[in-house]
């Protein structure tokens, strides 16, 4: 099986380049995932660099651009991919090395969304109550694994990574706005005012298309916009 993989080591390369790799058919097993193949290729050439950890799609380490589409290598079946398989780092982020990108901007925007519960009431001795229906509002939001597949496939985030929060951070913004226990609705909405942080979303929906967890940031962004509209009326 043939691969074409983006290589760049600033320690020795002046320019990035694409390198061809071949994985022996004998090493391929039914149900093999792309990450398994990458680990085999790394055994052949240990300079090939990428992040990985859980191998089952929950840690969010191995986001990369796979045949032109962002995804997680560990839950992408090899058999689903056209060869030669072209692997590149996630788009529009500074490349540290090979498939490893610098996610500083992504994490900065995540922090800017105040991704934590704010509740200033005295703490009860037991749990705060939340009905199953209220809790259900968080489904499809809290499962985000911060792999950055969505934000790095979003043209609005490419153009304004410092001003537009991006789909992942906005999904978290809505996760807390939607939480019956959170009391900071006004603060959260105030901070999203203006033309960039929220409103740069043009519903291109690449985020929905690529999310490996099947989440829908575009819908969450729409809900925030609705809430803002309601508040201004």
């Amino acid at each position: 099986m043939r691969f074409s993989i983006y290589r760049f080591d600033p320690d020795k390369d002046s320019q990035p380049y694409m390198q061809d790799y071949v994985l022996d058919e004998a090493k391929i097993w039914p149900g093999m995932m792309l990450l398994d193949a990458l680990l085999e290729l790394k055994a052949q050439d240990e300079t090939l660099s990428f992040r990985r950890s859980c191998q089952e799609g929950v840690c969010g380490s191995d986001g990369m651009n796979i045949n032109g589409r962002n995804g997680l290598a560990c839950i992408t079946p090899l058999a689903s991919l056209k060869t030669p398989i072209e692997l590149r780092p996630m788009p529009a982020q500074p490349v540290i090395r090979d498939l490893i990108v610098d996610l500083t901007q992504f994490y900065t925007q995540y922090r800017a969304a105040k991704p934590y519960l704010i509740n200033e009431d005295p703490e009860p001795e037991v749990e705060r109550l939340q009905s199953p229906a209220e809790r259900e509002q968080l489904d499809g939001l809290y499962e985000c694994i911060l792999c950055a597949c969505c934000s790095t496939s979003c043209p609005s985030f490419w153009w304004n990574p410092d001003k537009f929060l991006g789909p992942a951070a906005l999904l978290q913004s809505w996760r807390f706005l939607a939480d019956s226990r959170d009391q900071a609705t006004d603060l959260r909405l105030d901070e999203l005012e203006g033309p960039f942080k929220l409103f740069r979303c043009h519903t291109i929906m690449n985020c929905v298309e690529v999310c490996p967890k099947g989440l829908n940031p575009t819908r969450a962004i729409g809900r925030i916009k609705d809430l803002m509209l309601k508040r201004s009326m």
Binding site: Y116, L117, P124, E125, E127, Q130, R135, D182
Partner: peptide, 18 residues
């Protein structure tokens, strides 16, 4: 566990909200 709930952990809930 109560502390975690206060921090915002989205525990599943029973009908009575616990």
């Amino acid at each position: 566990v109560y502390e975690l709930e206060h921090m915002g952990v989205p525990f599943s809930r029973l009908d009575n909200g616990k």
